[in-house]
Design a protein around this nucleic acid. Sequence first.
DNA 1: GGAATAATATATCACTCTGATACATTTGTC
DNA 2: GACAAATGTATCAGAGTGATATATTATTCC
Lengths: 182, 182
Amino acid sequence: MAIEKKSDCVILGLLSHEDLTGYEIKKRMDTALKYFWGASYGSIYPALGDLVKRGLASKRDGAENNRNKIIYSITEDGRNYLKGWLANPVEKDELRYETLLKLFFGHEAGVEQTLAHIEAFEEKISKELPFLIGATEVLKKGISEDDTHKYYLLTAEFGVKTYQAYLEWCREAKAILKEERG
Amino acid sequence: MAIEKKSDCVILGLLSHEDLTGYEIKKRMDTALKYFWGASYGSIYPALGDLVKRGLASKRDGAENNRNKIIYSITEDGRNYLKGWLANPVEKDELRYETLLKLFFGHEAGVEQTLAHIEAFEEKISKELPFLIGATEVLKKGISEDDTHKYYLLTAEFGVKTYQAYLEWCREAKAILKEERG
DNA sequence: GGAATAATATATCACTCTGATACATTTGTC
DNA sequence: GACAAATGTATCAGAGTGATATATTATTCC
C-alpha cells in the first residue's frame, strides 16, 4: 500500500475544487492554507509534472499573449486517489514554533530577551487575528450557497480559537516572567 | 552573517543545561520538546559531529561496560553561538496539521469521514492534555528552586492553553457539521 | 536459571521539502 | 514613459524525516 506524498495530496485537493496553474496553487497555499499548511515552488512544480505522468492530473496550455501558462486539472484517477487519502486516518499533526523553542532556553538569554520574543509573537498574532475573524464572517454568510464553505469555515474557526488562546497565553506568560523582577 | 541551522541550536540549547548523549538528546525531543519541536536521529548525530568539528561542542568517551557511549558538552564558543541565536528575532512559527488539511477538503470526503477526523483529533488531544497539566503542576512547585523551571513552565502553559482551545473547537466544529444532517 | 522483550546507544540513507534564485513578461502606478 | 509589482515556470543546494541496521544491557515473566 503506497503511502501518499503530502504535496501530491494538497495539490490534488486544490485541483478538486478548480483548475489551477502552479503559480495559483502557490497563492492558495499562501492565503487560504497558510494557517495550517505550506508548500514551496520547489515542491509544487515537480509534483505537478509527476501527477501528470501518473495520470492523476492533466495539463493544458492556457497561454495568453506571450505569457506561458499551464493549467492543471484533476483526473478521475486523481479524484479517487484523493478520496483514498482522505479516508485514511491522519498520520501527523505537527507544531514547530521557534518562539517556544527560544522560550524553553530562556534561562540562557534572560528575562528581557524572553519577554521581547513573547511581545513579538503577541504582535504578530494580534495583526493576523482580524483577518481570520473576517474570513469566518464571509464564510458564514456564504455557507448555504456553497457546500465547500462549511469545510473552509471549520479551518478558519480553528484559527480564530487558537489565536485567541495564544493571546491569552501571552498575557499569562508575561505575568509569570515579570513576577520576580525589580 | 551566518544563518543558524535549527538542529544546531536545539542541540546546543539542550547541552547548555546538561551534558548528554545523542540518544538522550533524542529522548528530550520526544518528551519535553515534543509539543513544539522535533528532531530525528538523522539530524541529531550528523549535527553533533559537525558541532564538535566547529568547536561549539566537545565529546568525551562515557563508555560503561561494553556499551559505547559518547557524552557531549557545550563549549564556551557554543554557548556564545546559542546566545547569539537567542538574541535574534524568531524567523518562523509553523503549524502543519494534516487534520485541518483533510477538513479543508472535506467536501470531497463527506460529513461522516470529516466528523471521524475531528473525533480522532479530539481523542488524541484529550489523552495528552492531562500530561501537560501534570507537567505545569510539577514545574510550578519547583519554580523557586531552579530558574530554568520558569521557562519550561511557559512552554507547558502554552500547551495547556492551546489544547483546551482545541477541545473547545472540536465541540464547535462537530456542531457546525451536524447542523444540516438528517 | 533461562527466554523473550524493552531500553540504551550509534549511525546511515533514500527521499521529501524549503528557501533562494533565475528568467521573462505583463499590469499598474506615478 | 519609466518604474515597480504581479504573474508565470523552473531548478538546486542544503536541511530534515522516517526507516533501517547493528549491538549490547536491563527487565520481566515463567
